[in-house]
Amino acid sequence: MNALETKQLTKTYISGHFWSKKSSPALNGIDLKIKNKQVFGLLGLNGAGKTTLLKILIGLLLPSFGKAVILGKPAGDIQTRKEIAYLPEMPYFPRYLTPLEILDFYGKLYELPVVERKKKTLEALVKVGLYEKRTHKLKEFSKGMLQKVGIAQLLLNNAKIYFLDEPTYGLDPLAAKQMRDIILELKKAGKTIFLNTHQINEVNQICDRIGILNNGHLIEDIEVKNIKGSMESFFVKRVQNNGKA
């Protein structure tokens, strides 16, 4: 069974006023299938449409045409959201709450019973190394620490699919390694992972399959084991030749 599937997924942004509307295409007919337990890495240059695709999959944006299906239901379905976890590129949290409070809040949204919620919250904070700071207000946190809170909230609901947008963004080398280890643990536990990244090394270490987006087109969709030579040169060639080998 596919964990995720898109058919002719298209997104066009409309801007301006009703008397002078401008449309800019962001995604053009994306057909993608990601199997259960697969780790898929989406690569692309800035503005290629990676974040747009991810936002449609998690329900923050609506497609202009085509469809996206997650675990057999349309993207954005409330019941399906219990089975997914999402980490944005730079997660922000209400500044006057503490990590303990925000994780407890997310636990409530996931409908976790009180005891389980408290247990998972503390476990997640220990895992990302923020247990000592659990009662500090989030406004005192650095970018890297906020990213760790973002990682902690991923671990609350034992999701089936993880959507990660630049998960090592803003992290120091040690924390970045810790993040990669968490992703590898999730992979080992048989989770499906959709990874949006610029870090080619990360893709090499973690992914089973990659897709390359260029100007809103999926120009490549290939198993990592079938890539000959270095991932970096493969990516550069494909983007420069717009998908042609």
């Binding site: 329900g59 019941q79 219990k82 944005p88 922000y92 997310y106 996931y110 909230q153």
Partner: peptide, 18 residues
């Protein structure tokens, strides 16, 4: 301001809440 401009809402509305 926090929810929209600072995007704290992204993480909330991608959770199972209508």
């Amino acid at each position: 301001f926090e929810e929209v401009e600072m995007r704290t809402l992204w993480l909330t509305i991608t959770k199972p809440v209508s």
